[in-house]
Each structure stands twice: as structure tokens, then as C-alpha cells.
């Protein structure tokens, strides 16, 4: 029996030497160490032998078993090593096959730019608040120095809920400026806030006009705020959004609720100031209206215009991605064609 065990051992080791891959190794393991292997059979048959023989044979058989197990382990390591250094042909991938698709979710370009704008002003200490889209005539016009029959009403073609009702008429806000009044009614200086939101106009739509668009209103009120601060704030903003190189123009303009009034334009990126269709051949593209809060507006909300001053601005939001990405039709924004939205 001891001879038999010895032969078994030699034969197993011979076979092991010929094993080349894990599959063959597994077959070898079943053959020599499995439940039906000769070694196992010998171990089982020991019980029927006399004690002395049983002890000897048992010791020998177990020793061979351990030896084979450790050889197996060694061989396994060897094979693994070999696999890692030169993998099998069947394990190679066609790495040019496309990857598994993941659904791509994106934010609307307006949401993206709104966040960018708000972040710039938040860094300057402005707080972000929102206000109602449906407004009273009072907040949209009267309180902003645009009473009934004021010629400046022509600047704001209005969608009315109630027509011809005076300051108690409801309307869709034509700008985010009514929030200037609401803010100053409930807070005292120092005030520093921006208001992103939708605005609406009674306007035939074309490539540059939409009946609904987004604005960001800004307001800062305190002692000692000047037009120079407004200039600095807006120049900082333009640099953040349009880059260091882009030219910025700060010129006099008229809005009834600010005095002095300002319009900010940036150099046209399409023609670099030479004049083209996009900029109306002026080389400049208006991006916002601004100015110092009119003393009558301050007085209306009980802020003493002799002690306090402030600036306000209203920024057209869609303009910015239009300039940045060369979008030539504002109507693309809210018609929600996925072939457009997926580009951002």
C-alpha cells in the first residue's frame, strides 16, 4: 500500500507538470484530490486495516495529500502569474466596441447661465431672492416713476391680466424691477440683492425678441454708494462672464426709475467691433440697463434719498449664451428642441 501511495504521488506530480491552464488544473485536482480520487479511496479504506498498518498508512497518505495540496497551490500561483503576464487570446476584448450608454441629463442653458450669473454676484455679497411673475401695475410701473400715460410706458409693451384698471391692474411683469420696490418695502439699508426671474412682453417674436425671457435684477442701497461703484460692480461682472479681453462700454441712457441712467454694452464678439448684423453694425451689444436708484423711488419706500443712495441694474439673461455660443435665434430657448438643448 505504501508503494501504491508512492506511485500515486509520482504520477500526480508528473501530470501536474503537464498542466497548462486553470481548467486542466481543476481536472487534475478532482482526479487526485477529489472525493473519488484514488487517494481519497485509500484514506477511506484505512478504517478496515489493523491499527499498526492503519497508523502508518494514514500518516503516509496524509503526508502525500498535504504535499499534493501544496503543489497544487504552487501550480495555481504559477498559472495565475503566467495569465497576468500573457493573457489568453479568449480574454482579449475588442476595446473598440462602444461603451454601455448612460443617460445624459443636462440643465437648460438658461438655468446654467443663471447659476453662473448668480454665483458672480453672490461672491460680491449679493443675496438671491425671487418674486412674483404676476404683478400689480403699481409695482411694475407706478412705483418706478412710470405713472399712467407716461411716455416711457412705450418702452414696456405689456401683457395685461386686467386692462385699464389703473394701479390695481394685474399684469405679467415686464421686467424684474418691481422687486426693487418689494425689497425696499420690507428691508432697510444696507441692501444688496439680486433677483433672477421671468419677464414678459407683448411683442411679436422674431430671432431677437421673445414674449418671455429671463432677467436678473440687482439692487444695492446704502450710504455712500456711487455710480463709480456701479461701474466697478458691472465691469467686474462683465470680466467674470465675458473674459478679461472683452471691451465694455458704460454710457448714459434713460430709464425712468434710475438717475443717472446707464446702459452697458460689450464689444461684439462676432465682428470684434467692426460692425455686423448681430450688433446692428454698431460694434456693441447691449447687455444691461442700470443706474442710480431715482430719489423719488427711494422716497416712495421711505428711504431718505438725501442720506442714502443706491444702484440698480437689469440684465438680459439669454443674451449671454447667445453671444457665447453664437446662437442666432432667441426662440430656440423655450421651444425646447432636444437637438438644441443637448448641446449645452
Amino acid at each position: 500500500m505504501l508503494e501504491q501511495l508512492k506511485d500515486l504521488h509520482t504520477q500526480a506530480l508528473d501530470e501536474l507538470n503537464k498542466v497548462n491552464n486553470p481548467r486542466e488544473l481543476e481536472l487534475w485536482r478532482v482526479r487526485h484530490l477529489g472525493k473519488k480520487s484514488s487517494l481519497t479511496k485509500i484514506l477511506r479504506s484505512l478504517a478496515a486495516l489493523p491499527l499498526e498498518e492503519r497508523r502508518k498508512g494514514g500518516a503516509q497518505a496524509n503526508e502525500i495529500k498535504r504535499a499534493l495540496e501544496s503543489s497544487l497551490e504552487e501550480k495555481e500561483k504559477l498559472l495565475q502569474e503566467a495569465l497576468l503576464t500573457s493573457p489568453l487570446e479568449s480574454q482579449r476584448l475588442d476595446i473598440t466596441l462602444p461603451g454601455r450608454p448612460l443617460p445624459a441629463g443636462r440643465l437648460h442653458p438658461t438655468t446654467q447661465i443663471l447659476k453662473e450669473i448668480c454665483d458672480v454676484f453672490k461672491n460680491m455679497g449679493f443675496q438671491v431672492i425671487e418674486g412674483p411673475d404676476v404683478e400689480w401695475d403699481y409695482y411694475n410701473f407706478e412705483a418706478l416713476n412710470i405713472p399712467q400715460h407716461h411716455p416711457a410706458r412705450d418702452m414696456f409693451a405689456t401683457l395685461w391680466i386686467d386692462a385699464g384698471m389703473g394701479e390695481k391692474a394685474r399684469l405679467l411683469r415686464t421686467h424684474t424691477s418691481p422687486m426693487q420696490i418689494r425689497l425696499m418695502e420690507r428691508e432697510r439699508p444696507p441692501i444688496r440683492a439680486i433677483v433672477p426671474g421671468r419677464a414678459y412682453r407683448y411683442e411679436a417674436t422674431d430671432a431677437t425678441h421673445e414674449s418671455m425671457f429671463y432677467q436678473v435684477e440687482g439692487l444695492a442701497v446704502d450710504k455712500g454708494i456711487t455710480l463709480a461703484d456701479l461701474k466697478g460692480t458691472l465691469f467686474d461682472f462683465c470680466r467674470c462672464i465675458f473674459g478679461e479681453e472683452r471691451e465694455v462700454r458704460f454710457r448714459c441712457d434713460y430709464f425712468p426709475f434710475v438717475e443717472p441712467g446707464v446702459e452697458v454694452a460689450i464689444g461684439c464678439s462676432a465682428c470684434d467691433g467692426a460692425g455686423c448684423r448681430l450688433c446692428g453694425y454698431s460694434g456693441w451689444i447691449e447687455i444691461l440697463g442700470a443706474g442710480m436708484v431715482h430719489p423719488d423711488v427711494l422716497a416712495r419706500v421711505d428711504i431718505d434719498p438725501k442720506l442714502y443712495s443706491g444702484f440698480a441694474f437689469g440684465l438680459g439673461v439669454e443674451r449671454i449664451p447667445m453671444l457665447r455660443y453664437g446662437i442666432d435665434d432667441i426662440r430656440l430657448f423655450y421651444s425646447n428642441d432636444l437637438r438644441f438643448l443637448r448641446q449645452f
Binding site: L227, A228, D229, T233, F235, D236, F250
Partner: peptide
Amino acid sequence: EEVVRIIGYEKIPITRLGSPLP
């Protein structure tokens, strides 16, 4: 506004808000 616009808005200095944060 009359004074500043005739002198020129380009002459207005560029400063940052110095008032305390709310």
C-alpha cells in the same frame, strides 16, 4: 446726470462697493 454725461461717463472712476454687507 447732466454734469456727468457731458463730462463723459468714461471719466467716472471704477470702484468696488465699500459699504458694509447686509
